[in-house]
Design a protein around this nucleic acid. Structure first.
Ligand SMILES: [Mn+2]
Ligand SMILES: [Mn+2]
Ligand SMILES: [Mn+2]
Ligand SMILES: [Mn+2]
Lengths: 224, 224
DNA sequence: TTATAAGTTTAGACAAATCTAAAAATAGTA
DNA sequence: TACTATTTTTAGATTTGTCTAAACTTATAA
């Protein structure tokens, strides 16, 4: 119907993420924080997004994204994550370097371009941070992830992603080789501070709860 | 010094192209035509570009791009042409399909991205239309091109580019296989309308003056 | 249940980029 | 040279996205 502006695309993406992939309703101030702007600006924009039927908005009641809005948001997220795959896999950037470039590339509008990029990359299902890539219809894989901090001593896990996407955290994990796909065994969990001793290939080292809380894992299974 | 906006980048690129790669001075109305806007809007923008020292501007006297402005323009042109190479060589788009996508991609700001893209593509010297790609310092190759319409009967030439970049023209040439790098022999030039009979690999066909005027060539030499 | 705090919206303003209409400058030509 | 025609600039508005400060609504807790 309407062609969203870059700003509108960014608002819709933020609302979608804040609403826990479209489910919860979101309040003005959390959008303001995430967009690094003022509540007044957000209110202005919410009225516009509502006029275009991308969100349901009632004064003082918060917003819920509509199907239409969700479609826009998922399109942007698809582009963002595909470009991140391109930047890491093809141009050999590190996983902590790609986000800001993808923030620009995600607004390049051609659908045909993203279709061919997807094909060229081999139709990847996940981005470098382990986040699922929606297909053209908005569907994406969602394997049951949980936090490494909830893992048990003696068990073996595979890293599937992170909950903290900051450069600082990603760089920190890279130093330890803690990337999606890597196998981690928990050797010991300290009672005192819930820090853990883990084994990654041949290395053994300590992870604080602060770190383990932000790593997503799944159970290790030999096949697949 | 200043960070140009996307609009400022587009104005500088247009001024650079209109000034015949920085040499001639350019008037307001030609910029307006090329930017598909009004002379009034151009005047407004010229004042801004002048304030930022990207052009020398005096009321009613036309503009000349400065060294600084030329550097900005060449940076954008470099990005545009590298993305066009990416789109044709890697994503397998046709040469008549890539321009509009490159118009968006050229404004993605990361210098490191373009550096790595350049490397990934093998440091190409020309884009799909035969236009030279500036290096990081703004230097580019410029082989002595002339129009096919100035070629002689019985001579053999190599296509190096086009002067008309419209989709319609590029599509037309693609139908005949007339792309940069292709060898063309002029069999006969008609006195009446200056149309020419040409041989391209095994095919022989007629080209109107309208077409031959817009094809750039260089003399054929067996080596190199 | 009422006061206060927290969150949200409105009012009014601003910068960037654009437009139309009118005024001013320059160019072309008799 | 003097009169038009063309080009360019100015004046005044508009749209988008933003801001601060003030007003208003809702939540919290004494
Ligand atoms: Mn990202
Ligand atoms: Mn990511
Ligand atoms: Mn182009
Ligand atoms: Mn080109």
């Amino acid at each position: 119907m309407y062609q969203p502006t870059v700003t509108e695309e960014n608002y819709l993406k933020a609302i979608y993420h804040l609403s826990n992939t479209g489910t919860k309703s979101v309040n003005t101030s959390s959008i303001a924080t995430s967009m690094e702007t003022t509540a007044a600006s957000v209110t202005d924009m919410l009225r516009k997004l509502s006029d275009k039927e991308w969100i349901n908005y009632e004064k003082y009641k918060g917003v819920k994204i509509t199907r239409k809005g969700e479609k826009v948001a998922l399109g942007i997220i698809r582009k963002h994550r595909l470009w991140e795959v391109f930047l890491t896999n093809i141009l050999e950037f590190e996983w902590d370097e790609v986000h800001n470039m993808a923030e620009e590339l995600e607004h390049v509008s051609s659908e045909e371009l993203i279709k061919r990029l997807d094909k060229f990359l081999g139709h990847p299902k996940f981005d470098p941070h382990g986040d699922p890539i929606p297909d053209q219809t908005g569907k994406m894989e969602s394997h049951d992830k949980f936090n490494l901090s909830a893992g048990e001593a003696g068990e073996k896990y595979i890293i599937t992603g992170v909950t903290d996407h900051s450069t600082l955290f990603l760089k920190h994990l890279r130093k330890y080789g803690l990337l999606p796909g890597v196998t981690v065994s928990i050797a010991e969990i300290m009672d005192y501070d819930k820090s853990m001793l883990v084994k990654v290939s041949k290395d053994k080292f300590h992870l604080s709860l602060e770190v383990s809380k932000n790593i997503l894992i799944k159970k290790y299974v030999s096949s697949k």
